[in-house]
Simulated assay, not measured.
Amino acid sequence: MKVAVMGAGAVGCYYGGMLARAGHDVVLIGRAQHVDAIRAQGLRLDTQSFDERVRVAASTDAHAAAGAQLVLFCVKSTDTESAALQLRPHLAQDALILTLQNGVDNAERLRSQLAQQVAAAVVYVAAGMAGPGHVKHNGRGELVIEPSSASDAVARVLIAAGVPTEISDNVRGALWAKLILNCAYNALSALAQLPYGELVRREGVTDVMRDVVAECVAVARADQVVIPGDVDAAVRRIAETMTTQYSSTAQDLARGRRSEIDHLNGYVVRRGAIRGVATPANRVLHTLVKLVESNARATAA
């Protein structure tokens, strides 16, 4: 299968690398520092079970997606529309666009920009870029994808490549479940610059998480979302299974980049306002992260 990865950060490099390692024709589209390193030395896929350099094509230009049957759409939620516009002239008409992003509304936003089939996916992986062209996998790696005409075939390809994958009729609920995990951990990990395992041992943190989760669940119910599984158990499991992982928001703030907080706690605040559900804990976390971001930009300027 010919696969293009739009947004070759940690998530894109991990899943693209796994597919390339399995023999698929993969191109990673990302920033120059990673593209240059991958072209020179291959992608270093540093996982819990192996550490290998995988030969894979890489480009900084969206035209590299031409002819791809599958596009893993992995850009930040803040860049969804702009990246879609870059891709649009180059996409094959029968391509499946699979969104591997944080947040719950990216598939809808993509469908407003693209004629191709779009399927949402929920991503459960702990990974980070340890250096140019070097993805460090810290745990998990499952995908849950919504049904489409190509989902069965894509799921088989992913499973054969070592990526546990299931198809679900309730991806909306699963996306909300993932959003709740992100809302519980991302901002706090970012503000404290602590990994999950250490974060939950700090005084008052689990109490704040409990408040955040309760607000998220209330907003989801008001939006008539059916959240699968035990939310509280899932929140506890993150700290147990991803002890050394820093949130993507923490990584963004550490690098002086704009985070996705508007699409995480900020999204819950906006939906809560529409539905008449109070979200003070999410509002405070959203505001604090935005303050850190604005201070970083002011300092850089």
Rank of each mutant, 00 (worst) to 15 (best):
Val231Ser: 02
Gly204Met: 02
Arg202Thr: 02
Asp223Cys: 11
Gln224Met: 10
Arg237Val: 07
Ala250Asn: 04
Ile227Cys: 13
Thr244Ile: 06
Val208Ile: 14
Thr206Glu: 00
Ala214Pro: 07
Val231Tyr: 01
Thr206Gly: 01
Tyr246Lys: 13
Val212Thr: 10
Ile238His: 05
Ala239Arg: 03
Asp207Phe: 05
Arg201Glu: 02
Thr206Ile: 03
Ala214Thr: 13
Val219Thr: 08
Val208Thr: 09
Ser248Phe: 15
Val231Thr: 13
Asp211Asn: 08
Arg201His: 11
Ala250Arg: 12
Val217Ile: 11
Cys216His: 06
Thr243Asp: 03
Val219Phe: 04
Glu215Met: 11
Thr244Val: 07
Arg236Met: 05
Asp207Cys: 15
Asp230Trp: 12
Glu203Ser: 12
Ala218Gly: 03
Ala234Met: 07
Asp211Leu: 12
Thr241Val: 15
Pro228Val: 12
Arg237Glu: 00
Arg221Ser: 01
Val219Met: 04
Arg236Cys: 10
Pro228Thr: 09
Glu240Trp: 13
Ser247Thr: 09
Gly229Asp: 03
Ala239Pro: 01
Thr244Phe: 02
Asp211Val: 03
Met209Tyr: 07
Val217Ser: 04
Thr244Trp: 07
Met209Ala: 06
Thr206Pro: 04
Tyr246Phe: 15
Asp223Lys: 10
Arg202Phe: 10
Met209Asn: 04
Arg202Leu: 15
Ser247Gln: 04
Asp211His: 03
Ala218Gln: 03
Glu215Val: 08
Ala220Asp: 03
Ile238Glu: 03
Asp211Phe: 05
Pro228Gly: 11
Thr243Tyr: 06
Met209Pro: 06
Pro228His: 02
Thr206Tyr: 02
Ala222Pro: 14
Met209Phe: 07
Val217Ala: 06
Thr249Gln: 08
Ser248Val: 13
Ala222Gln: 09
Met242Ile: 09
Thr244Leu: 08
Ala234Gly: 12
